[in-house]
Design a protein around this nucleic acid. Sequence first.
RNA 1: CGGGGCGUGGCGCAGUCUGGUAGCGCGUUCGGUUCGGGACCGAAAGGUCGGAGGUUCAAAUCCUCUCGCCCCGACCA
Length: 570
Amino acid sequence: MRMSQSLIPTLKEAPSEAEVPSHIFMVRGGYLRKVAAGVYSFLPLGWRVVKKVEKIIREELDRAGCLEVFLPAVIPAELWQESGRWEKYGAQLLRFKDRKGADFVIGPTHEEVICALVRDDVRSWRQLPLNLYQIQTKFRDELRPRAGLMRGREFIMKDGYSFHVDEADTQREYKKMYDTYSRIFTRCGLAFRAVEADTGNIGGSSSHEFQVLTETGEDALVACDNCDYAANVEQAVGRHTPVKPNPTQPVKKVATPGKHTIAEVSGFFGVPPEKLVKTLVYLANGKPVAVMVRGDRDVNEIKLAKALSVEALALAGDAAVKEVTGAAVGFAGPVGLKLPVPVYVDVEVASLSDFIVGANEDDAHLTGVNLDRDFKPTAVGDYRTAAAGDACARCETGHLKAYRGIEVGQVFFLGTKYSKPMKVTFLDQDGQEKPAVMGTYGIGVTRIVASAIEQNHDKDGIIWPVPLAPFEVTVLALQQDQEVLATAQKVYDELTAAGIEVLYDDRDERAGVKFKDADLIGIPFRIAVGKKGVAEGVVELKRRNAALVRKLKIDEAGRTVVAEVQKERK
RNA sequence: CGGGGCGUGGCGCAGUCUGGUAGCGCGUUCGGUUCGGGACCGAAAGGUCGGAGGUUCAAAUCCUCUCGCCCCGACCA
């Protein structure tokens, strides 16, 4: 591609709204333009990258025996009503009416549509297993789109759904998809980690997320420094070795005027936060419950909601806290609660003796409090958020480290969550009608593009891994000089003829502008053709990710670069 | 939805407090000099100051309403 004939509008300054590197460089490099919040146009360079990612995904999925289909983005409401998600999915679901007044949605995910397809055309166990996928535009009306492609409202997703005769076969496919996904992200040149994940509102019983590790990631993760345990903090578990409590002190009320945060109470008593216990009041489906975790810990609301089997869980407001404890926020404790609410105690608290809690009266705490002796818990369990430094729950010696990640893929074991309500059944060998067992597998295509940049950039611009780069080689003609142009054209033609994707900067611009733009756009191999070099019979080859500049004889340049590029293609 | 901020040529911003001819840098066009890391000189094009209403002799500036966008949080694949 001749740059003078393409549309690659690079900018010296980024729009003020862009904050993360991937967003800044995609706009500055002429890859992407915003149309509305979370909605973007891809320019020629950006679209080439998307197609690179899609190609890798198609190759690997087709190799794994998956079948590509294409489902509609516009879906009649009846299908969503049938699954129950018309009510449940909430405001993220973009709904609209057609001219006849019939309700429709723009698909944020396609379980309903695929189930409707399969139930009509798959009747026998002989037709299973089946793994169908598509690459398509989704729309989710996010509360707050952000960071360019990392969280858009409209985005390109590969979504796949598999159907099986039983759970064992679904597990086999789950493992296969897990391995296939690992291959896909590896080929994309990403440093990623598969982590155990919460199953969110898609539901189902087990799930792994594929997380690209990067500081700007939205998800908090922990991973063991010794074994391969890794999990989203939403559900990560740290090991706790129980200690038998040894009560030695009586309960004693101490005046603590104005000390209502853990830091204040810790300072007042001269006791570290991990020896304190905080009692939080939550409303679980509207009913108050108390939860106790160590002072240095946070309650994991996802774990708690699961343990309580409730959908709505939120910290109680000042008024509700007053009602339950009889005191202002900051003085709650398990002893002498005004209302007899259930008390859920984290296992770490069960190992403490003589601890300090709120007295359920303003400006007072109790010291010397002990579980069982002074109050009876409703349940003892894992209600805290795992943190860096925790012992690994999986191995003997490891400890957890904290990471941030961008979720680029997820695999779910779905079971019959959708096949039952959507009546996806088949006749088994014994003549019985059974619901198909399902798995579902997603990849955020546009998110891969963003996360690849997050992981591969410097202050000057993008540094594409070869498999995702919009072009593999860029040729710069440094002067508008006849011999320079002829040489550049010769190298360009040679590489193009060898099947290399080349961006030829033939613009009438100064050399400095071309160097800056080349760094910004981030093409992996750069060939600079200049007057001085041509006089010596050489051109210069430089990798975007290395400082080294190599001089190549003009006659050998094409062949050398072809070999280098082919080595880097995967 | 809660908190904070911003809407002024294509992009980045000043001007708003204290009302009085709409400015600067980048980019774009034309001419010239330059030419290996975002050149210089000269000329030019380009703006209903997000929108509506109001106050005023006069509104980018003050008042009311409204729309959009960004950041933090809550939520979420």
